[in-house]
Amino acid sequence: MALSLKEMVKHEDLLTGGHRACAGCTGANILRQIMLTAGPNTVMGGATGCMEVVTTIYPYTAWKNSFIHSAFENVAATISGAETAYRSLQKHGELPQAAADAERMNFIAFGGDGGTYDIGIQALSGAMERGHRMVYVCYDNGAYMNTGIQRSSATPFGAHTSTAPAGSVKQGKEQDRKDLTEILVAHNIPYVAQTTPFHWKDLATKVEKALSCGGPAFLNILMPCTVGWGFPMERGMQIAKEAVETNFWPLFEVEDGVYKINKKPKERKPIADWMKEQARFRHVFKPGNESMLEHAQQWVDQQWDLLLKRETMTNM
């Protein structure tokens, strides 16, 4: 497995330039990085969302491998159909030659947090439970960015969105975010992990582990969004890095039920450091909203402590 950039750079870029993602879109980079590891023998499915839209605007496609989009909520079901077709055609000896010759065909479904945490969770849960050999990738940018930055169940507490805006009475999202990664762990599938595009080596390792685990796998990948989060477009990778350093987005993996935290920050950076770089949290720093900041920090601490315990518990 290629784990140096010196080796990876020899891999074919399967997501071409010329896609219509915003300048500085870390989501497009996530897909590019995934494909550098997955390779051309991959069937990719996209849920309706930014990444599906910007990579396939007819008559152009940025995908050099096969790609399918059908709807918003059903990418996990769609790819489970493709994976089943593959198994059946293989059994019947009816695969196209190139697929029959391939060492492994990969089946990957991706969706944003809207398409995954919310509208697509039923199809995702079903596909994971059925045990298809497929990887589901959620690029989590914490809101419905494609439709104009509406709140999702992945939106962090306090964040300003277009459907839960900060105003004179309300102060952004009033709930904590859903822990989807943990929900996927509860499916008892072979591999679940969180990563970010900044941690390219971690990402490549996890993509390969997910593809080769022999069953369903889930990757939750943080996708800092320059437009929706409100930070300068060159800062996306740094924001991803700091999300890990503040424990907002721990890098960890769960292999056959056993937790492993891949990066433990030496000191806990305050979440406020990360939040103050993003316009969506601007109101949280206004006088009178101190308790919001406190809550945000408490939540991060609580989640991190829980994760540490889970790691300890499953490694005893």
Binding site: T56, W63, H69, Y86, L89, P96, A98, A102
Partner: peptide
């Protein structure tokens, strides 16, 4: 399922 002839299905 034909990596020799990849297609994009269902674009925008």
């Amino acid at each position: 399922l034909d990596p020799a002839n990849p297609v994009t299905v269902g674009p925008l």
